[in-house]
C-alpha cells in the first residue's frame, strides 16, 4: 500500500470513530430519562353511574367512566390523533376531542373524525369502595 493511500485509510477510520463517538452521546443526550413513577397499581374513588372521574395514572391523564349497565372502564384521555385530551360528554355519552372533532364511544373506539385508533384502555378492578388500576 502506498504511503498516501494508507494515510487516507487511517484518516477515514479515525474520522469515523471520532464522529461516531460524538454523535452517539449527543443523540442520547437529547433523550433524557423518563420520570418512571411505575407505581404499578393505583387506587381511585368510585364514580356514580353515568358519571366520569378524571385522573392521572402513571403520568398519563386518564378517565374512569361508570357506564350505565356496563360497569367501569379506565381509558387514557390522550387522543390518538395528535395528543389533545378528550372530554366526557355526559349528554351524548361520548368522548370528544376538542382539537379536530374526534369522537370516541365509551369503549374508547373511534366513532368519527381523524383519530386513527382506539384510546388506550387500562386494566381495572373494583375492590369495595375503591377502583384499582394497573
Amino acid at each position: 500500500m502506498k504511503r498516501r493511500s494508507f494515510l487516507g485509510v487511517l484518516g477515514t477510520i479515525f474520522g469515523v470513530t471520532a464522529f461516531g463517538s460524538v454523535a452517539y452521546p449527543l443523540l442520547r443526550y437529547l433523550g433524557p430519562p423518563q420520570a418512571k413513577i411505575d407505581a404499578g397499581k393505583q387506587s381511585f374513588k368510585k364514580a356514580d353511574v353515568g358519571d366520569a372521574r378524571e385522573i392521572v395514572f402513571q403520568n398519563t391523564p386518564a378517565i374512569i367512566i361508570n357506564r350505565p349497565g356496563k360497569g367501569y372502564i379506565a381509558l387514557s384521555r390522550v387522543c390518538t390523533h395528535l395528543g389533545c385530551l378528550i372530554d366526557y360528554d355526559r349528554k351524548s355519552k361520548k368522548l370528544i376531542c376538542p382539537c379536530h372533532a374526534g369522537f370516541f364511544n365509551l369503549e374508547g373506539r373511534v366513532e368519527s373524525g381523524p383519530p386513527p385508533k382506539a384510546l388506550t384502555t387500562f386494566p381495572l378492578r373494583v375492590e369495595g369502595e375503591d377502583i384499582i388500576i394497573g
Binding site: V56, P61, C84, L85, D87, C97, P98, C99
Partner: peptide, 8 residues
C-alpha cells in the same frame, strides 16, 4: 397539561 381548551 390536564385541560385542552376548545379553540386551539
Amino acid at each position: 397539561p390536564l385541560n385542552t381548551p376548545a379553540d386551539i
